[in-house]
Design a protein around this nucleic acid. Sequence first.
DNA 1: AATTGGCAATCAAACAAAAAGAGTGCTAAC
DNA 2: GTTAGCACTCTTTTTGTTTGATTGCCAATT
Lengths: 341, 341
Amino acid sequence: MKLSERKKKILQYVVDDYISTAQPVSSKSITEKYMQGISSATVRSELAGLEELGYLNQLHTSSGRVPSIEAYKLYVTELMDKGGLTRKEVGEIKKAFNVHADNLETVVQNAVKIISELTDYTSVGMAAHSKKEKIVKLDIFRYKPNQALLLIVTENTLIRDKFLDIPEAMTDEQVKEAGKLASSYFTGKELGEIIKLGKLVEEEFAGYREIFNSVMNAIEEYVEKDKVGVVLEGEGKILNHPEYNNDSEKVKNFLSVVTSKDKLADLLSEENDDIEINIKIGGEDADMPKDCSLVTASYSAGGVNIGTYGVIGPLRMDYQKVVSVLEGVGKILEDILTNKK
Amino acid sequence: MKLSERKKKILQYVVDDYISTAQPVSSKSITEKYMQGISSATVRSELAGLEELGYLNQLHTSSGRVPSIEAYKLYVTELMDKGGLTRKEVGEIKKAFNVHADNLETVVQNAVKIISELTDYTSVGMAAHSKKEKIVKLDIFRYKPNQALLLIVTENTLIRDKFLDIPEAMTDEQVKEAGKLASSYFTGKELGEIIKLGKLVEEEFAGYREIFNSVMNAIEEYVEKDKVGVVLEGEGKILNHPEYNNDSEKVKNFLSVVTSKDKLADLLSEENDDIEINIKIGGEDADMPKDCSLVTASYSAGGVNIGTYGVIGPLRMDYQKVVSVLEGVGKILEDILTNKK
DNA sequence: AATTGGCAATCAAACAAAAAGAGTGCTAAC
DNA sequence: GTTAGCACTCTTTTTGTTTGATTGCCAATT
């Protein structure tokens, strides 16, 4: 099962070539483009070997080879060259972040946009909700006889508006009081801390127990998965790639995932805590569109996770470029955020 | 230029048939399906007349007829049958609104979703921001040395988070004071009223003039066009329709409009004040995808406009169904909102 | 034992020609 | 005004042929 050096090289060439041309790769083209000293017959037997091992596929007997999912996996982990960004690209990224950012969501928007532009793939991002964030402001006030509006602002300026069901019998005064109590109780606390508190609340604020529990639920929901904060860009770019050009089933499938913020939030929040760059290939995940790859990166500033960004595209994705861009954006973003804060 | 009754009937049949089959309509099929007592030759001469008048087109000499944009226009205004909704559909709509609505955006989301489901087209909605809405709460507080966060809550529970640039020299106290002043000044006022006030502010609150102006800008922007409030559903459904199936250029075009909330907000806020159902056909508008139709409806409850909803799809859209659904959803939505309030 | 040149076999893609079919427009008759 | 009939047009489908790319295998070579 161990691959010879030459097999690896050849596999790399096949994947490289297939990524850039979208055409099955022939033994001849390999000898011409990459390995002049060797004959095509030799490459052919190597290719046969790689196919045997499950790294390559043939569409029909007399066609060139196409990489298998296994091949892509090996490619991203071992085979591909790590390319950096050009000066120009770095410049473009910096410029993209230079525009006046109105709020945190705008920053995410900018990041996602430049990623999509530089890679030419659909890109997606989500600001992280660190459990270390503190609540800066909390307010509750009556909206309808049986509903109150909950307002939470955290350090990172993310705001949550949510309705709470309240008993009609409550007077405006009581609602106000509940708000005051909740505010003095929650303000200044870290989100994670609050979640951990769990059921303690029941005893202390018996009168407003329901309300307190609703507030805690809202906070928990917000930290765990904030689908509202998912930003998407370039959803149509999938059509720039030939494998999606005449297959509207595939496109439909792709769009159904990509346009569901729920699903995207799920995908982006998977196990990204410690890993920096994360590549998920093929339709292993129920939420992933079949025949797609997802490359994600988690960014942090000052040791705190500040968000997850990613690119979704065809299996035949330019991983090298994508990884470079994600790393580049991450670095610049982190610089900006650490300096500004 | 006046159409005979029979010409109108025939034109209606052609459009009906084309809408349901997506195939050019032949004289023979008309006599078979719709006008048994008449011969195909007669229909042919009528069709030739309608073509003369610009209502029909032929793809080539020996093909059936296809409706022109003019034909669609006439169809929606005069020709088409007005069909209602089935009991089942009404039931589905009611069910869709029965789920617990967390906030106003959820209501919009539900409406858009059920519209998309029932029509099988991409649908879009935007809550209206009536100038009559009053500000219920307004708050300003410091976020960074040179930025403050502005928070506005209106009767309809829409909240806007927005950063204001402030001089670093301002003390926290001053920010607080500005907030208090702004709150007491703006709270209770109608949005329209505030916009009209315009520059009066300059004199009165000289010390915090900048801040007051920023607040007013934010309010104006919010009333004029709130792109954040645009909700979209079923963007992939365009692919269910054959004219988009093998034309990825068209799809790309469509997606580029539909995925831009800016453009959608523009489209939805055009001149919808007094008209109830508004049909825009073909690519007259720069913001409209070419070869698309947009059907919008403005809903109101208690005399106040509460939002605009619409369906975007191919020219060959099932207008009858779409109009029925939009009307049906509007009616039910209005009922719910007027009762609840 | 690995490599190579040569060659038949395979298969998709491109092309061409022919046949089938759908629909029209026109005309002469009703 | 309506209709049957028919020639004509143009697309679609079918069928067959050619071309070209590529492989796998084998025997010869290094």
